[in-house]
Design a protein around this nucleic acid. Structure first.
Lengths: 339, 339
DNA sequence: TTGTACGCGTTATCAC
DNA sequence: GTGATAACGCGTACAA
């Protein structure tokens, strides 16, 4: 029976060291750190002094292993190239941080297969819950969540199938901005779409519904490209669209990037906006208010979605019911000079 | 001696379960997963089948606890509201992901006290290394890194004090763009600065040096505001600057947001850019190429900084020497219509 | 309010 | 090449 000293991890100071220094048992140290009320003030004081003196840092892995709770939340987003998700992350962070939770961020690159792999990989961390973007996920994905009874909140959209969602109706938003274009007198309203993720397609649905309602639907006015959106692409799509359909009198772009690129190209080509061609975007990113002419778009409550979703998830993790299965945070039309 | 069955964490399937199913010992399962070469092909096969059949997911916390290696990297950035850091994160992610490392992201909100707190908090996860933004950190911060011998790479800037840095010279970049304005014939060149973090101040230093070199320095042409930068703020600062110094003939804005806001306000006020007032930004964010007029700015290799820094950190973690203490990834002047 | 005994799931060590 | 055993650092259950 030989003792085998191993390399100590971290600073090497353990709860036992603190306990010894404070003249108490390890469990008392644990309680001072986790449930201070259960420990008498004088012991609490002594322990805290020892903690400071030794610069003790608790080991998260030991804690997770012993308690089966990681106090970690997995956040799955489609992209790190899009301000939209950054804002959402900021909202999430503000809530989780305050609650002592930490977030693991997974970037699925708009790919549900990759998303599934990420879930599998991050499962090793035993996250207490998951924040997801969108409603559509690979088949095994939801199975895994269910089998492990992993609390999950779906961000950015709404569904009435019992899943906990925080977002707004992408379809209604798409319809609303299209109706605005109709009301401003436009009739041959085109759609510019890139990336073609779930949300873009719903905005497209809303656009179609609004046009059908007005008897103006024209399938020849839709331009869709699955590659990632960018301002450059907006400019290119604008040219292609006008070349194919010079009679087009308005464009709903599936996001601001596309719209700003289209707007810029109009400026360069001398196309009068909004007189000859009205342009609308989606998301109300910062440049929308500052480009020339300023861009009509749909403001989306991204940060609020993140913070609200995080709060809901914490409720689920705590075993409480969510405030509501669906939370509709709405959207707002920002009517500016481009329409 | 009562057996106390506890609630199993995760899916409940452990390495022992897999071992039993495969008819081997637990340690063999561990080897199959971590050092497959050390196990005979036939056992490897049997074990992998059991792993799949049971949908076994290894526990990261147990692994970290037993091995004292977390395969986790802490990334500390100043803000989640800035595309610059997003791009950096994307670069980091691509490298870490491929190496089987995961990143913990801490947002310091441009505050070195908060940054220190974040380090303390995330130390609980026993990160194998740290990626930092900038060179200046709270005093205890570097102490902690040193005491725990935590490998660290500093991003975004350069220093020749032995720390491993990946970035470019903020000062040289500031000087270079200022010289460009000088060369285009401007003489009363102002500086618009917000946030006033370390990097902005270095750009300011570069600006001052270039002007002094040309005998054009005028302290009355510097406008500094410590609050976060935004396009709105750029617009407001432009008005204030021109009101105070109508003779100002060029502006170097410490980042593109400020510059684009200033540019937009010029458009609104009918100020001819670049004839009456040239404007330059910094970072070359997407809108810089698409605003009217397009914005002269400094392109910075953010994504490359992230990926390179991550690679260097992995070397340090592995105990190898970095390729170089300092890696200068440079910058590039993007000369467009606003100057 | 405080302490004892034990187990969480994995890897390191050493033996075969 | 494979296995038995002992850590890793902490929290739970229960006793005092």
């Amino acid at each position: 029976m030989s003792r085998k000293p191993r390399i100590r991890s971290g600073s090497g100071v353990t709860m036992h060291d603190v306990a010894r220094a404070a003249g108490v048992s390890a469990i008392t140290v644990s309680r001072v750190l986790n449930q201070p009320q259960q420990v008498s003030p004088q012991l609490r004081e002594k322990v805290m002094q020892a903690v400071d003196a030794l610069a003790y840092v608790p080991s998260r892995s030991a804690r997770t292993l012993a308690s089966a709770r990681s106090r970690t939340v997995l956040v799955l987003i489609p992209s790190l190239d899009n301000t939209v998700f950054l804002d959402t992350l900021a909202g999430i962070e503000s809530v989780l941080d305050a609650a002592g939770y930490q977030m693991l961020i997974g970037n699925s690159h708009y790919d549900s297969e990759q998303e599934l792999q990420l879930l599998r990989a991050y499962l090793q961390h035993q996250p207490d819950g998951v924040l997801l973007t969108g409603l559509t996920h690979a088949a095994p994905f939801e199975d895994i969540l269910r089998r492990r009874a992993l609390p999950a909140v779906y961000m950015m959209d709404l569904a009435d199938d019992g899943r906990c969602c925080v977002g707004f109706s992408q379809e209604n938003a798409g319809a609303a901005i299209t109706r605005h274009l109709l009301e401003s007198g436009k009739r041959r309203i085109g759609f510019l779409g890139a990336q073609l993720d779930e949300r873009v397609l719903k905005r497209l649905d809303g656009y179609r519904a609004a046009l059908e309602e007005a008897g103006c639907r024209d399938a020849g006015l839709e331009w869709l490209d699955p590659s990632p959106s960018s301002m450059r692409m907006g400019a290119a799509m604008l040219e292609a669209a006008l070349a194919a359909r010079p009679d087009c009198d308005a464009l709903f772009c599936c996001n601001d990037d596309l719209a700003i690129g289209a707007l810029a190209r109009c400026q360069q080509l001398g196309i009068a906006v909004p007189e000859r061609l009205a342009i609308a975007g989606f998301n109300d990113l910062q440049p929308a208010a500052w480009c020339t002419p300023s861009l009509t778009t749909v403001a989306t409550p991204r940060r609020a979605i993140g913070s609200h979703a995080a709060r809901q998830l914490l409720r689920l993790i705590a075993g409480e019911a969510p405030e509501a299965a669906q939370t509709d945070l709405g959207f707002q039309l920002m009517l500016r000079r481009s329409s």
